[in-house]
Amino acid sequence: MTVPSSLHQRILADIGQKIVSGEWPPGHRIPFEHELTEQYGCSRMTVNKALTHLAKSGLIERRKRSGSFVARPRSQAAVLEIHDIRTEVEALGLPYRYSLSSLTQRLAETPQDATAGFSNAVPLLDIACRHFAGDAPFCLEERLISLEAVPEAADQSFADTAPGAWLISHVPWSTAEHTIRAVAADRATARLLDVPPNTACLVVERRTWSGGLPVTRVRLTYPGTSHAVVARFTPEG
C-alpha cells in the first residue's frame, strides 16, 4: 500500500506544532512508534520516516530503547567571552535556577592545583554547583578561587549567587585561558547532569589572572547534545 506523502507531512506538522507551541516542552516523551501508527492509521515505516526527519532537524532526540524526546534548545557560548551562565539560559527563553552543591576552604596542595597555576599552600575556595534551564540540569560548575587574589570571596556564602556571576561583577581580570575538551560523563557527572553514563559532554576549562596573579580555575561541564562553543575570527593585518 502506498501511503500518501500528505500523511507524512501531517505527522511532521502535528508533532512540530506541539513542540514549537510549548505544549510538549523539552524532555517530553514523544508517543512510541506503535502508538503513532495506531493514531494515524499508517505503517510503522511512515512514522519512522517522520521521526527521523524531526531528529535530523534537531527538534527531537531518539534514544535507543527509551524512545523519542523533545530536544533541549541548543545553547552557544563564544570561546573568547566570559559571561554569566544565567545569560546563556535566558537566551534560550528558559527559566534559570542555581544550586550550590558544596563549598570548602582548603590549601592548594594537589598536582591538579599546581597545574591550575596555584602556588603550594595558597588558600582556596573549592566550590561545586549546578545551573538549571527549566527543570533540567544545564551545566555543572567546579571552581577554585584563590583567596590570595580575592580575599573577600571568603565572606561569600554563594548560596544565592553563582561564583562566576559574583567574580564578573567584583573582580577585574586581565588575562584568560580556555581549554575545550569532549569527555564521556562518569557516573557522578552523569547523575548530576541527569544524563546516561558515558554521555558525550563538552568541558570548558577556564583560568583567569589579574595583574599576573591567578584568580580562578573553573571546569564547566555541559551535556554535549545541548551546547556548542563558537568562535569568530578576523584575519590579522
Results as ranks from 00 to 15, higher is better:
residue 157 S to V: 01
residue 163 P to E: 00
residue 173 W to L: 12
residue 98 Y to H: 00
residue 177 E to W: 09
residue 148 E to W: 04
residue 127 I to R: 06
residue 114 A to E: 12
residue 145 I to W: 03
residue 168 I to K: 07
residue 132 F to G: 01
residue 156 Q to I: 09
residue 94 L to C: 12
residue 121 A to S: 14
residue 162 A to H: 07
residue 139 C to H: 00
residue 177 E to I: 14
residue 175 T to V: 12
residue 118 F to Y: 06
residue 88 E to K: 09
residue 136 A to H: 12
residue 114 A to S: 15
residue 162 A to R: 03
residue 144 L to I: 00
residue 139 C to E: 04
residue 189 T to V: 14
residue 132 F to M: 10
residue 170 H to D: 03
residue 182 A to R: 06
residue 167 L to Q: 07
residue 170 H to N: 13
residue 169 S to E: 14
residue 93 G to V: 10
residue 107 L to A: 14
residue 188 A to K: 13
residue 186 D to P: 14
residue 130 R to Q: 12
residue 180 I to P: 02
residue 140 L to R: 09
residue 136 A to D: 11
residue 153 A to R: 04
residue 180 I to S: 01
residue 116 A to P: 07
residue 156 Q to W: 01
residue 95 P to G: 11
residue 187 R to C: 07
residue 147 L to N: 10
residue 176 A to L: 13
residue 175 T to D: 08
residue 154 A to G: 12
residue 122 V to W: 00
residue 99 S to H: 13
residue 146 S to K: 05
residue 133 A to W: 04
residue 183 V to N: 02
residue 128 A to S: 14
residue 165 A to H: 04
residue 110 T to A: 05
residue 125 L to C: 11
residue 163 P to Y: 04
residue 102 S to Y: 06
residue 181 R to K: 07
residue 148 E to V: 09
residue 154 A to L: 02
residue 177 E to K: 10
residue 159 A to N: 12
residue 186 D to Y: 00
residue 173 W to R: 04
residue 155 D to R: 10
residue 146 S to H: 08
residue 119 S to C: 08
residue 88 E to W: 08
residue 141 E to P: 02
residue 90 E to G: 06
residue 119 S to K: 15
residue 173 W to H: 11
residue 93 G to M: 09
residue 174 S to M: 01
residue 93 G to C: 12
residue 135 D to K: 13
residue 119 S to L: 15
residue 111 P to K: 01
residue 100 L to Y: 01
residue 92 L to I: 06
residue 163 P to W: 03
residue 180 I to K: 04
residue 128 A to Q: 13
residue 83 H to I: 10
residue 159 A to P: 06
residue 188 A to S: 08
residue 144 L to A: 11
residue 107 L to C: 01
residue 176 A to E: 07
residue 151 P to T: 06
residue 184 A to L: 13
residue 151 P to G: 01
residue 101 S to V: 14
residue 93 G to R: 09
residue 178 H to M: 02
residue 176 A to T: 10
residue 83 H to Y: 09
residue 99 S to I: 02
residue 152 E to M: 10
residue 188 A to N: 07
residue 148 E to Q: 15
residue 151 P to A: 01
residue 130 R to I: 12
residue 150 V to T: 06
residue 149 A to C: 04
residue 102 S to F: 01
residue 85 I to K: 11
residue 135 D to P: 14
residue 117 G to H: 08
residue 87 T to K: 13
residue 179 T to S: 14
residue 85 I to P: 15
residue 180 I to V: 15
residue 89 V to R: 07
residue 137 P to N: 03
residue 163 P to N: 02
residue 82 I to E: 12
residue 161 T to N: 04
residue 171 V to C: 08
residue 107 L to R: 09
residue 151 P to V: 01
residue 99 S to K: 15
residue 154 A to I: 07
residue 98 Y to I: 04
residue 144 L to K: 12
residue 140 L to K: 03
residue 84 D to R: 11
residue 138 F to E: 00
